[in-house]
Design a protein around this nucleic acid. Structure first.
Lengths: 332, 332
DNA sequence: TAGAAATTTGTAAACGCTTAAAAATAATTG
DNA sequence: CAATTATTTTTAAGCGTTTACAAATTTCTA
């Protein structure tokens, strides 16, 4: 049932190379024999073997994608964009999930190489592998904040922190919180902007979640334990959460203890996923479509033009989408 | 920089076939030459070309996965399981999204074939392509309710409907609603169980959403328009929603009009995604991990044993996870 | 209408690997 | 130690394409 070009050739009474020519756009093949070939092809249903094509042409039209998790809906929107834009450019996606594990990430990269991917798009687990990835001959771009070794596209997280800080200050808040895992650019940008405005982010107002609490049960547990620790008294009237899930979980946990949002507490999330949209949570918008478009521009450029210029770092501007959770009602 | 076996062979002073043997598990190759080869390999960093392997061995160790959408978080958990279980079995995932479009779905299948995938896992757009897929020589299994032409694994949706109906009846409800797109097995199972218990699902209590409202803005709009149509008077005290997003959106829309859940209205969703978990929505649990495990059992069996027995249909049992949204408080 | 030019077709090598079969080498045995 | 047998290595063909090059056919030109 699985046909090869050779058999098509025989059936159509032409040589294999003619069949090949017909398939790849007809250059210099007579109308009539082309038609004969096409007829045979669609009668017997021939589909060319891309493994052979890849071997011969030495490119696969596959792009390897490695992300770090799927729990955060942000990644889903990313996958979605990646898949559809790749298709638009004639590429397929080989999808891997590193689960934040650098070893798994490196294995994925090796796998990509062995599959002769034409390019890689990686949401890195950290800085562990980026340098050696940059040494590879396969072009890659990284979706994240600045990485010096590779083309990268990401959001200006520090600016995001600043925007949130200023929004809170402007609303009249005086005490501030932060909800997240390890301190990152968002956090530093936020804190710095507060300082610049004569405000302070107190140590004890950092609701720190375990890096590994990548699933909601653990995340909620971390939040509960914070709230217990402070005796259910939240010292801040507004907080910036490192992603929408955290924002939502915190809102829920607070609500269970009689603290309501936005009346007693303002919250701004991050990513602007559909979670935020559905639940009316203010959030920093990540322009995912634009990020992916840019990613492909960089990648296709390297792939098609074999350029080996200095890596370029693209930082997109965050915007604050205001919804109900940061509507000052009576807080300060 | 990209090495081939030939070059490794030269560097290690052996023939190509020896290199090949070393790579594929050493059978009948002398310790010493094996070591020499291995040394060269890890010095120069050789990674075998899988396109060539695929061509020669005529299998790719790739499984093609085609889903219908990514908006519903259910699919994400599915992708996640699919990817990790595939990897566990030594396969990679080529991911496509048909966006509910049968034409795109068929293109994906063709693409899979041309890439010599060893198997396909498909969440079908409907019945459009299943028959011709079953005619292909590549084994496939479909994740959905019963399909006669292919191995399939899915939940017993009718039973899910029945479980929900009985739960509502048992709680003392007298008037029932349904929120979903087109009528499906869930709906029929729900309605039938109601009838069997002397209850009725009124036509006007079917909150019908557009099939295409696959993104939240449209879904919310459909709900709003239903509520406006009935003058904000909801005639039912409990409703079964075809997925968790619909459940959540309906709860939010109702809440905005002063109808609160579970006090005035009980809601049970479907899929038991993390949305339901985070928001405390009762939901019919889809045992995704088990579904995927079963899927791989079926697929690997066909792939490895080349069996061509009758397609088997596996129907898993749904379970109701009760949370706050169906806690009877004062409704009937 | 012969010869040149243009078009169409076919032949064969190559892409990087695996593997059956042949060849070379080493180990065993009477 | 020659003959067998067992082990290790190499040779070469082939997987299904693409493509440079040569060969054949058609079309044009004087």
């Amino acid at each position: 049932m699985k046909m090869t070009m050779k058999e098509i050739a025989k059936l159509a009474n032409v040589s294999q190379s003619t069949v090949s020519r017909v398939i790849n756009g007809n250059t210099g093949v007579n109308e009539e024999s082309a038609k004969r070939v096409l007829d045979v092809i669609d009668k017997v249903g021939f589909i060319p073997n891309k493994a052979a094509q890849t071997l011969k042409r030495s490119h696969s039209h596959i792009i390897g994608v490695c992300i770090t998790e799927t729990y955060n809906p942000y990644f889903i929107e990313l996958i979605d964009q990646l898949e559809s834009q790749a298709r638009k450019h004639g590429y397929n996606i080989l999808l891997h999930n590193s689960n934040h594990n650098p070893i798994q990430e490196w294995e994925s990269v090796q796998n990509f190489i062995s599959r002769q991917v034409d390019g890689m798009i990686i949401v890195p687990t950290g800085d562990y592998n980026v340098e050696r990835i940059s040494k590879l001959s396969t072009p890659s771009v990284v979706i994240t904040q600045n990485r010096k070794f590779l083309d990268s596209v990401g959001l200006d997280h520090a600016l995001a922190g600043k925007i949130v800080a200023e929004k809170f200050i402007h609303s009249g808040h005086k005490s501030f919180g932060f909800i997240g895992t390890e301190p990152d650019d968002k956090y530093f940008g936020y804190r710095m902007a507060l300082n610049e405005n004569g405000m302070k982010l107190k140590e004890e107002n950092y609701v720190q979640l375990e890096e590994s609490s990548t699933n909601n049960i653990l995340m909620r547990r971390d939040i509960e334990s914070y709230l217990n620790q402070v005796g259910n008294i939240i010292d801040f009237t507004c907080a910036f959460a490192a992603n929408d899930i955290m924002a939502l979980e915190f809102i829920n946990a607070a609500k269970d203890r009689g603290i309501s949002v936005p009346e007693d507490l303002n919250i701004i999330g991050f990513d602007d996923t559909y979670l935020a949209k559905i639940m009316g949570i203010s959030s920093i918008h990540q322009p995912i479509e634009e990020m992916v478009t840019t990613t492909f521009e960089l990648l296709l450029n390297r792939m098609e033009n074999e350029v080996s210029s200095k890596p370029v770092q693209i930082k997109l501007k965050p915007t604050l989408i205001e919804r109900n959770s940061s509507n000052l009602v009576r807080v300060p």
